[in-house]
Amino acid sequence: MSDTTPIIRMINVSKLFGDFVALDDVSLSVAAGERVVICGPSGSGKSTLIRCINRLEPHDRGRIIVDGLELDEDMANLRSVRQEVGMVFQQFNLFPHLTVLENLTLGPIRVRRMARPAAEALARQYLERVHIPEQADKYPGQLSGGQQQRVAIARALCMEPRIMLFDEPTSALDPEMIKEVLDVMVELAGTGMTMLCVTHEMGFARKVADRMVFMEAGRIVETAPPEAFFTAPASPRARLFLDQVLEH
C-alpha cells in the first residue's frame, strides 16, 4: 500500500444552507494515517466539512470519495462508508437510555453483526483504551463530561474504523476535563489512525498534527505543516486568528 493514495478525496465540494454558502468549492485530500487539524473562526465551515465526510450533511456540488467509495444517494454504499468512519461530537450524543457497555455494543451487534459476547469483549477492550473500564455498567447521565466524551470515542472505535472525525470534541467540556480527552486522542494518534480534527486546542494540534488546515468563509485559506503554520502563517487572516487564540 503506497502512502500517496489518499483515503479521503474531496473535489470541488460545495454545501449550501438556503442562501448561506457553508462550503465554497473546497478540495482536500487526506492520506491514510495522516492527522489533519482543521481550525478557523466560528462559522467558517469546519464542522460542515467533516460532517460531509460521513454524509451527515449531504454536499450539493463536487465529489467526495472515502476509501474508494463515492458518497451519493446510494444508502448501501453510505452504510459501508460510515462503518469505516467514526465520529465524535461536541455534545457527546451518547444514548442516554443505554448503559455505557450497551452504547458501545449497539453498532458492533446491529451493524457489524457480531455476537454479543464478542461485541462486549471488544467494548471492554476499548473502554480500557480510554481508561474507564470500571464505568461499563453505568448510564451516561452518571458520568462526568470528560468520561462521557471518552465513552463516545470508545463507541466510535468499536466499529474499528479506518478514519476518525472529531467535531470540536473538547468545546463542551469543563477546563479540568479537557486534558483527559486530549490524552486519549494523542494516544489514538500514536496508533496510526487517520484523524481529522476540528479543534481550538492549538497545543494538541502542535503535538499531533501532520498538517494544519485553516478555513474561513467556507474556503480553505491555508494548508501547512504545523511548524510553518504556527511560526509563520502565510495568510494575514490566519495570522490574525492565531494571534487571537494563542494570546493566552
Binding site: 444508502m75 460510515r82 462503518q83 450524543n93 451493524v111 466499529m159
Partner: peptide, 14 residues
Amino acid sequence: ATGQWEAAAAIGLS
C-alpha cells in the same frame, strides 16, 4: 434531540 439521530447514523445504523 437531533444529536441522537446523528450519533446513530455515524455508527452506521439504518
